Amino acid sequence: MLEGKVKWFNSEKGFGFIEVEGQDDVFVHFSAIQGEGFKTLEEGQAVSFEIVEGNRGPQAANVTKEA
């Protein structure tokens, strides 16, 4: 699992990017966010995740919000 911070997330469109120190930003789709209820992320929020190869390159999977 990697750790990063949410760079930005558009809850209307359901996607955004996660910043990872020393690496390129990683695309995140709302469907990759773990948990119940409305799936969104806040700018600057700490998250842990895995990287998988998507249709358009690397993207986040199994995203969990850090306490």
Rank of each mutant, 00 (worst) to 15 (best):
M1A: 12
M1C: 05
L2H: 12
L2T: 12
L2M: 11
L2F: 13
L2R: 06
L2G: 09
E3Q: 15
E3H: 15
E3K: 15
E3R: 15
E3C: 06
E3A: 15
G4S: 03
G4I: 01
G4A: 03
G4L: 01
K5N: 05
K5F: 06
K5S: 05
K5Q: 06
V6R: 01
V6Q: 01
V6I: 10
V6S: 02
V6K: 00
V6T: 05
V6M: 03
K7R: 12
K7Q: 03
K7L: 06
K7C: 05
W8A: 03
W8H: 04
W8V: 04
W8L: 04
W8E: 02
F9V: 03
F9G: 00
F9M: 03
F9N: 00
F9C: 02
F9Y: 09
N10P: 02
N10I: 07
N10E: 05
N10C: 06
N10H: 08
N10W: 09
S11M: 11
S11L: 12
S11E: 09
E12G: 10
E12N: 15
E12T: 14
K13T: 07
K13P: 02
K13S: 08
K13Q: 07
G14K: 03
G14R: 04
G14W: 02
G14V: 01
F15V: 08
F15C: 04
F15Q: 04
F15G: 02
F15T: 03
F15M: 10
F15P: 00
F15A: 03
G16W: 02
G16I: 01
G16S: 00
G16P: 00
G16F: 01
G16H: 00
G16C: 01
G16Y: 01
F17R: 03
F17P: 00
F17E: 02
F17Q: 03
I18W: 01
I18Q: 00
I18K: 00
I18A: 02
E19M: 13
E19W: 14
E19K: 14
E19D: 07
E19A: 15
V20P: 03
V20L: 14
V20N: 06
V20C: 05
V20W: 10
E21A: 13
E21N: 14
E21V: 13
E21W: 14
E21M: 14
G22W: 07
G22E: 07
G22T: 06
G22P: 03
G22V: 03
G22N: 12
Q23V: 09
Q23F: 11
Q23E: 10
Q23S: 12
Q23T: 10
Q23L: 12
Q23K: 11
D24H: 14
D24M: 13
D24W: 11
D24P: 15
D24R: 14
D24N: 12
D24V: 13
D25I: 06
V26N: 01
V26S: 03
V26T: 07
V26D: 00
V26A: 04
F27Y: 08
F27E: 02
F27R: 03
F27I: 03
V28P: 00
V28S: 02
V28N: 00
V28Y: 03
H29P: 03
H29M: 06
H29E: 03
H29L: 07
H29D: 03
H29V: 03
H29Q: 03
H29T: 04
H29C: 04
F30Q: 05
F30N: 04
F30M: 06
F30I: 05
F30S: 06
F30H: 08
S31R: 10
S31E: 04
S31H: 12
S31G: 07
S31A: 09
A32Y: 05
A32D: 15
A32K: 06
A32F: 06
I33N: 02
I33A: 02
I33P: 01
Q34W: 10
Q34E: 15
Q34L: 13
Q34I: 14
Q34M: 15
Q34T: 13
G35P: 03
G35K: 06
G35T: 09
G35R: 04
G35L: 07
G35H: 10
E36D: 12
E36G: 10
E36I: 07
E36V: 09
G37F: 05
G37H: 06
G37M: 06
F38T: 08
F38E: 07
F38L: 09
F38R: 11
K39F: 06
K39C: 04
T40W: 10
T40M: 10
T40V: 10
L41K: 01
L41A: 04
L41N: 01
L41S: 02
L41F: 04
E42D: 11
E42Q: 12
E42P: 07
E42T: 13
E43D: 13
E43I: 14
E43N: 13
E43S: 15
E43K: 15
G44A: 06
G44N: 07
G44V: 02
G44Q: 07
G44D: 06
G44R: 08
Q45S: 09
Q45E: 10
Q45H: 10
Q45R: 07
Q45M: 12
Q45P: 01
A46I: 12
A46E: 08
A46T: 13
V47M: 02
V47K: 00
V47L: 06
V47I: 08
S48Y: 10
S48F: 14
S48G: 08
S48L: 12
F49E: 00
F49R: 00
F49Y: 05
F49T: 02
F49C: 03
F49I: 04
E50N: 09
E50H: 10
E50I: 09
E50Y: 13
I51P: 03
I51W: 06
I51Y: 07
I51Q: 05
I51G: 02
V52E: 08
V52C: 04
V52T: 10
V52R: 11
V52N: 05
V52K: 15
V52L: 10
E53W: 14
E53F: 14
E53L: 13
E53T: 13
G54I: 07
G54A: 11
G54N: 08
N55E: 14
N55M: 13
N55A: 15
N55S: 14
N55H: 13
R56N: 09
R56P: 09
R56I: 09
R56M: 11
R56Q: 14
G57D: 03
G57T: 04
G57L: 05
G57H: 05
G57Q: 05
P58Q: 08
P58W: 12
P58F: 11
P58H: 09
P58G: 06
P58S: 08
P58E: 05
P58L: 10
Q59S: 07
Q59L: 07
A60W: 01
A60Q: 00
A61L: 09
A61S: 11
A61N: 09
A61F: 11
A61I: 11
A61H: 12
N62F: 11
N62S: 11
N62I: 07
N62M: 11
N62A: 08
V63K: 00
V63T: 03
V63P: 01
V63N: 01
T64R: 15
T64F: 12
T64K: 13
T64E: 08
K65Q: 11
K65P: 11
K65C: 04
E66V: 15
E66K: 15
E66A: 15
E66R: 14
E66P: 13
E66D: 14
E66T: 15
A67L: 11
